[in-house]
């Protein structure tokens, strides 16, 4: 069975802001593909580059190396008019609901702009706008109100409506629930799930919350210090190959407190992610790695060579890890708290 052509693919992207000695690249050699109708999660903590990756994928930031293809076409190669139109295929729902809407335009006008960028009579599009608002479960009567009259959660819905108005093929959700209360988070996520089903959308979900990613996504890519360290279908979270993914999974709070012991290792003293401007040599995770040179003998390759992202276990060819000494893939069940290390 041939795989469908990817909707979006980034290959060997290196990107950053300014790119001088003081502002080094934020992303290094990142490759990612999104097939139509699938949802890919991008998970990382601070300093991982996940906000940057959203901007690169949506076309706001040009990579210094590598390329981003939308439907197989690199947008930079198109003429300006074509590029503008092609941009509409990928839409972004930004993180901050308080900054994503023009404070001077009513939400009806914002949606009108999305439906017809050239500007058109409101009357012609009023029905469509009402429809869009209903899709995101907002009362169509609120179209004449200004953004500041709405709560954060409601504004996120408007941002979603605007993204949908363009009828994109792919939506990138950049930490869309981080600014919201827990109950509102759940509502927005439910909304996204149902919309995704209805419109058969592909989705990239950028988040720091592993639990949300596990719930929303089909595949997951784990970012650490600007590199993808693990990539594969969601079930890999049950038995990760890369020690960082293991650490992430083990750090998610559980009511029994197992996460307190599971994520700890006596020999590891470094707990913070390093400064992106001053990354460790070789594998960026080695100072914190529970199976790395701090703990085990003879792992100097971790300090010297940057591990490439590749398939480590022939039996699980859809999963890749960037590790010289990946963890075994579990085939047996584990008791709570038991470590795979």
């Amino acid at each position: 069975m041939t795989k469908p052509a990817p909707l979006l693919s980034a290959s060997h992207v290196t990107a950053g802001y300014g790119l001088t000695r003081r502002a080094p690249a934020v992303l290094h050699d990142v490759s990612l593909t999104v097939a139509p109708g699938t949802t890919v999660g991008v998970v990382g903590e601070s300093g991982s580059g996940k906000s940057t990756i959203a901007r690169v994928l949506v076309g706001q930031l040009t990579p210094s190396e590598g390329e981003v293809l939308v439907d197989g076409v690199n947008l930079q190669t198109l003429g300006r008019a074509e590029r503008r139109m092609a941009r509409r295929r990928v839409q972004l729902i930004p993180q901050d609901p308080y900054a994503s809407l023009d404070p001077r335009m009513s939400i009806g006008e914002t949606l009108l702009e999305a439906l017809n960028p050239a500007g058109g009579p409101m009357s012609r599009y009023a029905d469509r706008i009402a429809e869009l608002l209903e899709t995101v479960r907002l009362d169509p009567d609120v179209a004449s109100r200004l953004p500041h009259e709405f709560s954060g959660g409601q504004r996120q819905r408007v941002a979603i409506a605007r993204a949908l108005a363009v009828e994109p093929k792919l939506i990138i959700a950049d930490e869309v629930t981080s600014a919201l209360d827990a109950s509102i988070q759940a509502e927005i996520l439910e909304l996204l799930k149902s919309l995704r089903r209805e419109k058969d959308l592909a989705c990239i979900f950028v988040t720091h919350d592993l639990a949300i990613a596990a719930d929303m996504c089909d595949e997951i890519a784990v970012l650490y210090l600007g590199r993808i360290v693990e990539h594969g279908p969601i079930p890999i979270l049950s038995a990760p190959q890369h020690p960082y993914t293991r650490l992430l999974v083990d750090s998610v709070p559980d009511p029994y407190g197992a996460f307190l012991t599971a994520s700890a290792h006596d020999a590891i003293t470094v707990v913070e992610p390093p400064d992106p401007a001053n990354p460790p040599s070789g594998c960026p995770f080695h100072p914190r790695c529970a199976v790395g040179p701090q703990v085990r003998e003879g792992r100097s390759d971790c300090v010297e060579i940057i591990p490439p992202l590749e398939v480590k276990d022939a039996q699980h060819s859809t999963s890749q890890a960037a590790c010289h000494h990946p963890l075994r893939f579990a085939t047996e069940t584990l008791a709570p708290g038991q470590s795979l290390l």
Binding site: I234, V249, A335
Partner: peptide, 22 residues
Amino acid sequence: PVAHIPSADQPDESGPITVGAT
């Protein structure tokens, strides 16, 4: 909490997706 890890060969369609111990 669910202490359940499906074998990767038989994707677990029935239950919820597990994340380590959660």
